[in-house]
């Protein structure tokens, strides 16, 4: 079942999302990338209604890119989060709302601070030290309450992330086979092989 989670550390944000595409009771694909790179220092993990997710994520991606091209400077994480929230909130009261839940991880190159935002399809926005979406959140949030350290090094952060993945794999009924993990820090975004 669809699960995404993220945590912040000293100067970075780690995001993890499962890689399965499900249709009814069938796994159709096991290598889907559900974390988009919005700008040089901004990542977005998306989950929710199939179709809506990709459509909405691409809409956001293109508009963030457009801002970057027009202004020669990317939108900073708090501003990007506000804009994406407004898009979802407006969509909620439209004829056909997007049902997409998001985790937004970014590194602010102006203040040298990592930011992590939790957002649901209502357009509820909250800045958090760690976050999760989907059924996995019921296991991972309690783990992160105990093990999360905002001053942790990348290695320690990855260790905590592995605990979460292991717990989801162990306890969730239909657990995802693989997770894709990405990191964003002062050097930009990159994928991490576990």
């Amino acid at each position: 079942m669809e699960t995404a989670f993220a945590l912040t550390g000293k100067g970075y944000v780690l995001l993890a999302a499962d890689t399965t595409a499900v249709h009814s009771i069938i796994k159709v694909k096991t290598d889907v990338d559900k974390i988009k790179e919005l700008s040089p220092c901004l990542l977005m993990a998306y989950s929710g209604e199939p179709g809506d997710t990709v459509q909405f994520a691409e809409y956001i991606e293109r508009n963030i890119r457009l801002y970057h091209i027009r202004n020669n400077f990317p939108l900073r994480p708090p501003s990007a989060a506000s804009w994406i929230r407004r898009s979802l909130a407006d969509s909620l009261r439209s004829r056909k709302p997007y049902s997409v839940n998001l985790l937004l991880g970014g590194y602010d190159t102006s203040t040298y601070m990592p930011h992590l935002y939790w957002m649901d399809y209502f357009g509820t926005l909250a800045e958090v030290p760690f976050a999760a979406h989907g059924y996995g959140s019921y296991f991972t949030l309690s783990l992160l309450d105990k093990y999360h350290d905002p001053e942790a090094t990348v290695e320690e952060g990855i260790a905590t992330l592995k605990r979460c993945i292991d717990e989801v794999s162990k306890r969730l009924v239909v657990s995802p086979a693989r997770f894709k993990v990405k990191i964003v820090d002062k050097d930009g975004v990159r994928e991490i092989e576990l």
């Binding site: 929230r85 909620l92 357009g123 926005l125």
Partner: peptide
Amino acid sequence: GLATDVTTLRE
């Protein structure tokens, strides 16, 4: 109330 409207109305 509903958190999305907290932010929307505040703005």
